[in-house]
Structures are given as structure tokens and as C-alpha cells.
Design a protein around this nucleic acid. Structure first.
Lengths: 217, 217, 217, 217
DNA sequence: CATGAATGAGAATTCATTCAT
DNA sequence: TATGAATGAATTCTCATTCAT
């Protein structure tokens, strides 16, 4: 006797959930966790505060998901690049440039990813995220070391250095790259060369410019 | 008599101010900004909450100064190393290792330095701090490029990469170096080689181990 | 055809109403009023929250009826026992033991009956309920006093004492009888003797054990 | 160098704490836990909501103390009466009448004592309270049984019955004694005789009337 | 008619800042 | 001048009730 939940309804529900996630993401990226109170998220999403709790059990869970969703997407892309054919150096370069490019375009992820959140649960998710990124880079480093492309090195620490390097360069406050005060391609190539030289110990000729096209996030 | 009392008074005032700063710093380093409420700082400093406001106009100003003080100290050390005689590579290496070593030993500075503070004013100070560190490294890079030691590169962005690399490696959550799970010297040498190779494009033979002595912060 | 549908409909309506009452009762008995939110009742009854409001104008009214229904059932049984033939003492004993036995088996009624409800309206119903129980016992007391079986006494207050005595003994927190830590028969006989002696002022020989059979609520 | 906290100050502090407890107690006794929100307590005590938390860590702790304080006071009185010289029956009678008298005068304690609180911690305290009262009566019962004054009986359950009996008679909603619709002495004597006859199985001649004087709580 | 998503008025709690003593 | 008690705005979360579909 249950009424069939109409397709429209289902869409609206999924829609709301997504809108909440987007609003939360937007607010954090614009004003940090400070600016992302439940009430603000609700208003931005066009809902009441109570409705947020229909979709997420708590503020912490909401932001864990915001972070997790962004990270998962990023990791998927990185893993694909890292598993593609090519030398370790090429694959590392592609991964760094791809990541850096998106971070340049939409500083949100990297921002949330650096920020100290107000909540322990979110903090834990942030740690998982950083470790996940590091793991991807560590994989290529190990492959490069094994194949003799890269000299032996502490891949663990080096991977952390890579993550830190472009994080800081792109979104950290001294990242002069902020906005578009510097040429996108130039910044990204600098970062990728930095990382490649760092792990290979060889002078790297940056990939032909113009390949990494600007793409909106 | 009156003069004497006044001098004592002044000393006590200066003393209290310093004690407040130290307590604030200690609390942040131990538990983050979350743990550094005015009341806690006051208790730790052996003063009343009201007294804090005799020395600092607001919580934000207090923490701006906490951060600023720590950074100034660090910058002084770095600048001395950078202005000492030696090749650009040597000076860069010394600066990186010195900074990294202190961060390894006492994660406070680096922590506060990454943390998203509760307050916009503190945030602004954090930006200044990161920029100041970057500037020091940028200086050496420019010198190295000018002297031909380093290939031409975007020194601005590269400096940010350096700061980011060791920040993440040492105190970021994937910094496996946390605690003492990894050998201090090994971690620091990995980082310094990473940075040197990154900017020089040459395989670097790390400095003889044992030179960088452990020192408590 | 239309008539048939209508009858089915009516049956379904009555059915739903009953299911809601049962679910509400079950939830209160298991977790107190705390656990009996409208949404939980609806889920348990296999209906939507909105539907609850088709059958009951408000949460308060629902629980007033839950309580009232349970009490009415209990009162019917008690009245039958009290109007049966026999001495006042016998009838009183039967009533007390019958009530106590059901309370021992299914603490729901007694629980709701003591609990401070979330709502004033339910509170009022609770008062009516207690008064109704008291009235039944008062009736027997009056009869016993009239017949000379019991000494003259304030039947009103004594009836309240009876209700309080077994309520507390059976479900109050010091009612060690909770669960089955004590022998059911023993507890019930103690209570009934307590009440009988209290009103008769004579040593009572408890009824032969084994008469009051355990029955699930 | 600490300023001496003035006696006045100390008095004011102790005063506030006491005022909060009194306000909380008053509100519960008047309108149940429903009416005792932190904001209401604060207003009643002439303080801000925040100030409540200077004196009590949480709402639950506040009400645990409200209940505990009242109970401790009551238990002290009961224990003194129970340990005084005299027969078990006399001591039991004095205890019951004393307790009943105060409950008649100020229904607060007994009310809170029956109410189902909104909070588990308070609930736990309530259970302790009831058990404590029961224990006092159980003690006299055991003594009376040992001395042959009372017939052998389950003292545990009987003690619960006593507590329940006058609780219900006095403050329970069927306690017609509410307000002063019935004569105070008459009600109290009825209760005490009820309890005495219940445990002794003998007709009790109530203590000479006029002895139990009305006293404000 | 049934549904269940949306609402929004509370309620508890925290903590920077003020100010009477 | 130092103190720390008092303040109260801000924030998260709950749940009875309504109403568009």
C-alpha cells in the first residue's frame, strides 16, 4: 500500500544531499571551517537547519564526507595516471601536474586539506586524506627506485615532501600562485620540475609547454 | 623609593607579559588552538583572566604575537645561516637542515604554522610568517641562480615548495617522522637532499652524518 | 462494491489506530517516554509520521489514550474481582495479587503509571488513572469496614497506600523484585499480606501458594 | 601578591550556589523537570545562564545535587529516629510519621523522588535515593523481626511497600491529602497505622493525636 | 488519502570580554 | 592594580507538526 516514491521526489532528495555537500564545500573554501556553521550551510543550500540532520547525522560527519568525496575523486585520477604506461618519471610528472593543475584552478580541496579543523573526526579524515595522497606518490617512487630511474631514497619521506611542496606552492599563503597573478603553466611546470629533480637528482627538461590546458574545476 | 618600586613594577610587568606568551605557546603546541582559551592561558601563567587583558587587547592579538615571536626567532637563525660564507647549495642545505631539525625536535612552531587558527587576524599573521620563511629561501635561490650554481627557475614558487616540503614531511599528518619512529638524521637528510636536488638538478651527496646534532627546542 | 471498499477501509483504519496504540505502548514500556517519539512509533507501526496525525490530533492525545486503554483494561479486571463473592479480605487479596502479578510480569503499565510524562495532558491522565485504581480499592475497604471485617479507617488514604505499596515494591527502583531476582510468588504474597494486615490489623495467613499462576502480559 | 578574596565575596559565591540549588528545587517542585531549564533556573536565581556553569558542570549534575541534598537531609533525620531508644514499632512509627509530615508540608522532595527525570544521571540518583530510604526502614524491620516484635517477613519488599505507601498517599496524584483538604494529623496517622499494622499484623492504637505538630519544611 | 521531507522553535553548553570589588 | 565572577551571544542538535506531492 506504500505510495511509490516518485522519481521526482528521489531526485529532489539526492539533489538536497548534493546541495548540502556543495554548500558546505563552498563555505569552507571561502571562509574556512569558521564560516561553515550548520545554519550557514542550511541557508546556502536553501534549507532549514533541521533538514541538514535528515541527511547527515552530525556536523562532523558532513564535513568528513565533504573532504572524503573530494579526496576520493582526486585519488581516482591520480591512481589512473600512475598506473598508465610510461617511465616512473613521466608518470610522476603527470600525476604532479594533474593534481597541481586542479589545485591551481580550485584551491578548495587543498585548502581544506591543510586547514586545522575544529573537529577531531574531521581531523582524522584529513590525516587519512594526506596519507592517501602520499601513498600514491610513494608507489611511483618505489617503482622508479626499483627500475633504477631514481636513486635509492626514503620514499616515504620524499612522498610527503612532494605533497607538501605543491600544497604550499599552490594554496599555502606564500603560494604566490594564488589567483592568477602568475602564469598557470609556468607555476605548474616549476612545481613539477622541482619534484622531479628532487627525486631523480637529474636536471629535468620540463614537458613541452601548452600541453596542460587550463580547465575549470 | 618610588623609583625603585616603579622599576620592580616594570620588571614584573615585562615578566608577566613574557609568562603569558610562553603559556599561550605551550598550550597551543600541546593541544592546538582548541586548548588555548584565555582562561587556560591565565591559569598556566599564574594570573587572572582579567590580567591577560592588561597585557593584550584581545585573544587574537595575543596569538598574533605568539606566532610572530616564534617566527622572528626562527627567521633570525635562518638569515644568519643564509648570510654565512659558502656556496648557495651549502647555505641552503644548512638552512633547511637547521629549520627541519628544530621542527623535528619541537613541533610547536611548525604546528601553529600550519594550523587553521580560530581567528582571521591570526590567520593573517600566519600568512606573513610563511611568506617570511619563503623569502629567506628565495634569497639563496636567487643568489645560486645568479652565480650559476642553480639553473634558472621560478625562485618564488620553488621557495614555497621548499617550505611546503619539509613542513609536510615533518609535521604534516603523513610526516611519518612524527615522534621518533624514524631516525632523526635520516629524515632530515632526506628532506635536505630532496630540496637541494630539486633546485640544483644535480645528484647531491648528503653532508656527512653526525654533523647536525640533536638539540632540544 | 463501494460499500465493501468502505468496510475494508474502515477496518484498515481501525487496524492502523490499534497498531499505533500498540507500538506506542511497546516503545514506552521498553525505553520510557524518551524513546517514544512520533517517528519511532510510526516506524514501528509501519506507517508514516504524517499518518499518526490522521488518527491522533497530537502526541499528547496519543499517549493519553495509550495510558487510558491500559488502565481501563486493568480496572475492568479489578472490578470483576472486587464484585465477586467472598469476604472483603478475600476480594481485596485477590485484587492486589492479580494486579501485582500482572505488574510483575509486564512492568509496562506500572512504569508508565509512575513515570513523569513529557506532557501535562498525559500527566493529567496519569492522575485520573491512579485515582481510578484507588477507587476500586476504596470500595472494598468501605465494604469491609461496613461489615466489621476491617476496623474503621480513612479508606481514601489507605487505598492510596495500597496502590503506592505495590507500585513501589514491584516497579519502583527499590523494588528488588525487578527482573526475576526474587521469587515471583514470594514477592506477591509479601505485598498482599502487607496490604491485608495493614487494613485489617490482623495477622494474615497468606493464601495457599501455587494459586496465582504466572501469565505473560 | 594574590588579592585576598574578601569574606563578602566568598559569601556571595556560596550564596549564588545555594540560590541556584534553591531555584532549581523550586522550579522542579512547582512544574516538574519540564519547567526547570537552565535558563529558567538562571533567571530565577538572578543570574545569567553562563553563570550556572561556573557552579555546576552540567544540568544533570545540578539536579543530581538538588536531589542528593534533599535526600541526605531526610536520611539523616530518619536514621536518628531509627537509632533512638524504643521498640521497633515505636521507632518505625516515628520515622514514618516524621517523613510523612515533612512530605505533607513540602511535597517537593517526594515529587522529585517519584518523577521520571529527563536525564539518565539524575535517574540514577533517584534510584539511589529510593534505595537509601528503603534501607532505613529495612533496618528497623530486621530489628523488629529479630526481637520477635514483628512476624518473619520479607523485609526488603516490605520496606519498599512502606516507601511506596506514603509516597503515593501524600504526593501521588491520588493522595487526596494534597493541599490541606484533609486534616494533616489524620492523614499522617492513617498512614503510619497502615504501615505498622502491615508489618506487625496487630491492631495498632495510633499515638495520641496532637503530638505531631505541624512544621514548615 | 498516505507519505515523509521540511520546518523551526527550543534547549544545553562554551568562552571571549567586562567590570565591581 | 589585580582579580575572577558574571555576562550573553553564538552554536549544535532534537523532534512535534505541517503540507506539497
Amino acid at each position: 500500500m506504500r505510495y511509490q516514491r516518485s522519481r521526482l521526489m528521489q531526485e529532489r532528495l539526492a539533489d538536497n544531499r548534493q546541495r548540502i555537500l556543495l554548500s558546505a564545500r563552498k563555505l569552507v573554501s571561502e571562509g574556512g571551517f569558521r564560516a561553515a556553521q550548520i545554519a550557514a550551510v542550511a541557508t546556502d543550500a536553501g534549507l532549514s537547519t533541521g533538514s541538514i540532520y535528515r541527511y547527515f547525522p552530525s556536523k562532523a560527519e558532513l564535513f568528513v564526507e565533504v573532504l572524503g568525496e573530494a579526496v576520493r575523486h582526486e585519488i581516482d585520477i591520480l591512481r589512473a595516471l600512475v598506473q598508465a604506461p610510461g617511465s616512473a618519471a613521466q608518470r610522476l610528472q603527470r600525476a604532479v601536474e594533474s593534481f597541481a593543475g586542479r589545485a591551481f584552478d580550485g584551491p578548495f580541496l587543498a585548502y581544506a586539506f591543510i586547514a586545522e579543523p575544529a573537529d577531531q573526526e574531521v581531523d582524522a579524515e584529513r590525516i587519512r586524506a594526506r596519507r592517501a595522497f602520499g601513498d600514491v606518490f610513494e608507489t611511483v617512487l618505489h617503482q622508479g627506485i626499483a627500475s633504477g630511474e631514481f636513486p635509492p631514497q626514503n620514499a616515504d619521506v620524499a612522498a610527503a615532501c612532494i605533497v607538501g611542496a605543491f600544497t604550499e606552492a599552490l594554496i599555502g599563503p606564500i603560494g604566490h600562485a594564488r589567483g592568477s597573478r602568475q602564469d598557470r603553466g609556468e607555476v605548474i611546470r616549476t612545481i613539477s620540475r622541482f619534484c622531479l629533480q628532487a627525486v631523480s637528482g637529474r636536471q629535468e627538461v620540463p614537458a613541452a609547454p601548452g600541453k596542460a590546458r587550463r580547465r575549470r574545476a
